[in-house]
Every structure is written in structure tokens, then in C-alpha cells.
């Protein structure tokens, strides 16, 4: 049986990793394998790691306000490297008006503060189906 593999990453200059760590723990408890890579990564590093780890999903966390550049860049790099099947989702302080552009860039879901952990796990279990 396929085990879901998730990469959790924090792109850019943002040191607030409490949320990402809570998610890592929550995904562990949901039975996923979580590759946690911590803070301060470039989009290039995240795309390269996603491919090396053969993950199904990349979860990006950003609380610094740079999501409009960083999130689409990760999605673009994955597309460029024939890895557009890897789903990209995002979370953090994301204003409502920024969301259409992020979805347009290829992100499949955005979770903002206050989202229940169970809701995120349920979204993943519904939408991430690794091929056999």
C-alpha cells in the first residue's frame, strides 16, 4: 500500500516555524511520512528536495508576506522539471485577495489561521491519491 509522503517547507526569510512544526506532528499522527526541512529555503531547494524525496505533496508555510512570489515559484519550478503531478498547497497569513493568483499559479489549496488540523488531513486524504 502507498504511504503518503509530504514535504513541509518554509520558503524565504521567515523564521516562524511553530505552525509548520505543529503540522508536521499532526501529519505524523495521521500516518503520513513528513519530510520537514525547516526555515529559510529557496524555491529551487524546495523543488529539488520534493523530487529527490518523491513526495506526493508539498506544503509551503509563509508568514512573511512573500507568498505571492515564493508559492508560485515553487509550483513553476516543479512544472519545469516534469513534476507537476506533485501537489502544492500553502498556508500562513494569506490575504483573501491574493488567493486567486495563487490558485492560478497551480496551488491546489490555501489554509489560513484558524483552520482545523483535521480539515487539512481530510483534504489531503481526499485529494492526494498516490498512484500504485
Amino acid at each position: 500500500m502507498r504511504k503518503i509522503r509530504v514535504l513541509l517547507a518554509k520558503p524565504g526569510l521567515d523564521g516562524h516555524d511553530r505552525g509548520a512544526k505543529v503540522l508536521a506532528r499532526c501529519f505524523r499522527d495521521a500516518g503520513f511520512e513528513v519530510i520537514y526541512t525547516g526555515c529559510h529555503q529557496t524555491s529551487e531547494q524546495i523543488a529539488a528536495i520534493a523530487i529527490q524525496e518523491d513526495v506526493d505533496l508539498v506544503g509551503l508555510s509563509c508568514l512573511s508576506g512573500a507568498h505571492k512570489y515564493l508559492f508560485p515559484e515553487v509550483a513553476r519550478l516543479l512544472q519545469e522539471r516534469d513534476a507537476e503531478d506533485i501537489i502544492v498547497i500553502g498556508g500562513g497569513i494569506i490575504p483573501e485577495q491574493d488567493m486567486p493568483a495563487l490558485y492560478e499559479a497551480g496551488l491546489k489549496a490555501i489554509f489560513t489561521p484558524g483552520t482545523k488540523l483535521d480539515a487539512i488531513v481530510e483534504w489531503i486524504n481526499t485529494n492526494v491519491k498516490p498512484e500504485a
Binding site: K3, A24, R25, F27, R28, D29, A30, G31, F32, E33, V34, I35, Y36, G38
Partner: peptide, 8 residues
Amino acid sequence: FTGGAILG
């Protein structure tokens, strides 16, 4: 317990 893991 859950079969999950944090690979850090």
C-alpha cells in the same frame, strides 16, 4: 502507533 514519521 500511527505508521507516520517525521523525517528531519
